[in-house]
């Protein structure tokens, strides 16, 4: 059983973060990132062509993380593979020792580095979770018995701050019904909305791991606000970062405060350090950092 799952199910506050596989075959930068943030985390997400941009596969890179002695969360998006490939990779993932799965839809190819690619989206994340849960039960999506089942700990993404909330809530409920047992949220800036989500979701038997994004530069804020249409980074936070003498330090201070608050609300925290990996220990205020 996955240690990450064990910790969550015991009610321990968990920490996750993420690493990106390289564009190329040289894994040394990813290994360095794993060595830096791994010791602070229960598990590390390994992204799957994140932002619809080409990278080495999450399947192979997750295995590398595992071999380094850390626990990966294998991410699977529905953008690049049809149902045959997704199922085949799920079977492969299990045999490679990957125990945690994050099923996500994936960004549209139009927003990535291959804008002329065909977005597959043969399945959506809920359907993918249903299929993975079926494999845990010993059968493929057609109901045929597998010669050896899986036992994935299945999670998904959710966005507690996005309105309309009633629609988000129904959506989350469907994901839980499909077999998701944990949610990793997008970056949280409004703790009241996180609280609202946790209160509604906990009774469904799903764990909520709240996202913290290190706003390491004003450019990051601009990027988020532009790409996500709405004002995702609230004015007062944006002003605080933009007005700081040392922006990186201020973003670390902000993230540290957010983690403290999240400890009181959610089941875990997911740190997105945007490359400032050395700061992860400080944000978490772990003793050995």
């Amino acid at each position: 059983m996955s240690r990450f799952r064990e910790a969550l199910e015991c009610g321990e506050f968990v920490v996750t973060s993420e690493v990106a596989p390289p564009l190329g075959t040289d894994l040394s930068a990813m290994r360095r990132a794993v060595e830096t943030i791994g010791p602070h985390c229960h598990a590390l997400n390994v992204t799957d062509n994140q932002g619809a941009t080409l990278h080495l596969s999450s399947l192979a890179a997750s295995r590398v993380v595992l071999e380094m002695g850390y626990e990966p969360i294998f991410q699977q998006t529905c953008r690049d593979r049809n149902r045959l490939a997704l199922q085949s990779d799920l079977l492969a993932a299990w045999t490679l020792g990957l125990r945690n799965l994050l099923a996500v839809t994936g960004d549209d190819p139009r927003s990535g580095d291959h804008p002329h690619a065909k977005g597959v989206f043969d399945l959506d994340s809920t359907q993918l979770a249903t299929i993975a849960a079926g494999m845990n039960g010993g059968h493929d999506m057609l109901g045929r018995e597998l010669d050896g089942a899986t036992d994935f700990f299945i999670g998904g993404a959710m966005f507690p701050e996005a309105e309309p909330w009633d629609i988000q809530l129904v959506r989350a409920q469907r994901k839980v019904e499909a077999g998701m047992r944990f949610f990793q949220t997008q970056a949280i800036f409004d703790m009241a909305k996180l609280e609202r989500a946790v209160e509604a979701l906990r009774p469904m038997g799903v764990k909520v791991i709240a996202g913290v994004l290190l706003l390491r530069s004003p450019r990051v804020i601009d990027f988020i606000n532009r790409r996500l249409a709405g004002l995702m980074v609230p004015e007062h936070i944006a002003d605080r970062i933009r007005g700081a003498d040392d922006v990186a330090e201020e973003s670390i201070a902000l993230a540290t405060e957010q983690v403290r608050e999240i400890r009181q609300i959610a089941d875990g925290v997911h740190i997105m350090s945007l490359g400032l990996d050395s700061a992860v220990g400080r944000i978490l205020e772990t003793k050995d950092s």
């Binding site: 996500v104 959506d124 809920t126 993404a157 996005a162 309105e163 959506r171 469907r174 996500l228 249409a229």
Partner: peptide, 13 residues
């Protein structure tokens, strides 16, 4: 994205 089940995680407001 042609998703049958949504909204996806990018929906905002």
């Amino acid at each position: 994205k042609g998703l049958l089940n949504g909204p996806c995680g990018g929906m905002w407001d």
